[in-house]
Design a protein around this nucleic acid. Structure first.
Lengths: 200, 200
DNA sequence: ACCTGAACACCGTTCAAGT
DNA sequence: ACCTGAACACCGTTCAAGT
C-alpha cells in the first residue's frame, strides 16, 4: 500500500523485539514477528539493524545496560562486588532465556563491569587485577545461570538410570543460591589474599 | 521407492548428527541434513528419537559420556578435582558450539560428576559437600567456556565506544587460561577450608 | 512394520516493483 | 527515499500412501 515514512528507529525495533522476548520467549522472536508487531514488513528491519544477529546483539546490550548498581560512598570493595554480582545474577535469572546473552556477545558485560573495575582499582587493585576480578565474577555468575537456568522442564524419557533415592547431584533452588553465595565468598577471599588486600 | 528396513538405530542417528556438528557446526544440524546423511527421509528420525530436542539431548550426552578421567590410586582429592575439571574444560573448549550443552541439558554433567563425587567422599567430604563441590567446579568451567568461547568473531559495527588503548576487560586466551586455573585454586582452597580438609 | 514424498506452517533474507 | 509483496532456500513436524 505504501505507508508514509515511519521514522522507524533502531530503538523501536529493539524495544519491540524485547517485548516479544519477555512475553513469549526467545523462539518467538523472529524478524517477521518483530516487524509484524511494528506493523511493517520485514525488509525495513534489515535496513536499520542489518540482520537477526545484530538484533540479538542489541537486545542483549539493552538487557544489561543498567545492571551495574551505583557504588555507595565508603563502601568496601568486597561489599560492592557482592552487590554487583547479585545484580547481574538477578538480571540474568529473570531473563526468559540465557541464550540471548551467551555465545559471542561479550560487549555488554564489558560495559557492565566498568564501574566494578573502577571501584576495585580505587581499593588498591592494579588495573590488570581489577580486570581479572571482573572476569572471575562474570564467569561465576554465568556458570551458575547457564547450568541452573530452566530447571522447570517437563521430564523427558528415562530421566535417569542411576541409583534410587534422589538425583545424586540434584540440589534445590534455594540450595543452589546458597552455594552461589559460597562460591562468591571463595572468590572474594581468594582475590583479597591474592592481591594482598584486606577482606571485610 | 520403499527401501528395505534399515535397522536404523538411535546410535547411528546420533553419530551422524555429531559428525555433521563437528564438521559444519551447530546450525548445520537439522533433522533434514541428518536424515540426508543417513540416506533416509526425515520421518524415521522422528520414529526413533522423537524430535530435534531429544536428538540434541542425546548428542550432548554422547559428547560428555567419557569426559571424567579415571582416578589414580592414592591421588589427592584436589589433584583429581583439577584433572577432572581440566578434562571437562578441554572437552567443552574443543566443542564447536557450547549451545549444544547449555540450557536444560544437565543430565550429562550429573553423569560426568559421579566419579568426582565418589572421590571427594572417599577423601572425607560428606555426601552433600561432595555434590556441592561438583556443582562449583561445573559452574566455574561452564562460566569460563560460555564467556570465553568463540572469541574469534568478525568485528561488527562500532566495536566499542570507550577509551582508546585496548579493551578495558579484554584479556588474551593464554591469560584467560591462567585466570581459570587461579579460579580453580580459589575454589579448591575454599572447599578445603570450608570442609575442614587439608589442601595439597 | 517401515519408509517415501508431499504437505503445513513457519524461518532469514533479498529484491523488483510501487509511492 | 522508503515500504510492500513475492520469492528463494531453508526449517521442524506430520501424515497419507506405498511396499
Amino acid at each position: 500500500m505504501g505507508r508514509p515514512p515511519l521514522d522507524l528507529t533502531t530503538d523501536e525495533i529493539v524495544e519491540a523485539a524485547c517485548a516479544i522476548f519477555l512475553e513469549s520467549g526467545m523462539d518467538a522472536v523472529s524478524m517477521r514477528t518483530v516487524s509484524a508487531q511494528l506493523g511493517v514488513s520485514p525488509e525495513p528491519l534489515y535496513k536499520r539493524i542489518g540482520n537477526k544477529e545484530a538484533l540479538l546483539d542489541a537486545m542483549a546490550k539493552r538487557l544489561l545496560v543498567d545492571v551495574a548498581p551505583r557504588p555507595r560512598s565508603g563502601e568496601h570493595w568486597q561489599k560492592y562486588a557482592m552487590r554487583w554480582t547479585a545484580a547481574l545474577h538477578d538480571r540474568l535469572s529473570t531473563t526468559p532465556d540465557v541464550r540471548l546473552v551467551i555465545g559471542e556477545r561479550r560487549e555488554p558485560f564489558v560495559e557492565a563491569s566498568r564501574p566494578l573495575a573502577e571501584q576495585l582499582q580505587a581499593a588498591g587493585f592494579t588495573s590488570d587485577a581489577a580486570v581479572q576480578a571482573c572476569r572471575l565474577l562474570i564467569w561465576a555468575t554465568m556458570g551458575f545461570v547457564v547450568v541452573e537456568a530452566g530447571r522447570h522442564r517437563a521430564p523427558t524419557r528415562e530421566q535417569r538410570g542411576g541409583l534410587p533415592g534422589g538425583n545424586p547431584t540434584g540440589i534445590s533452588s534455594a540450595e543452589a543460591r546458597r552455594l552461589f553465595r559460597l562460591n562468591l565468598k571463595f572468590i572474594l577471599d581468594g582475590l583479597a589474599r591474592h592481591n594482598g588486600l584486606s577482606a571485610e
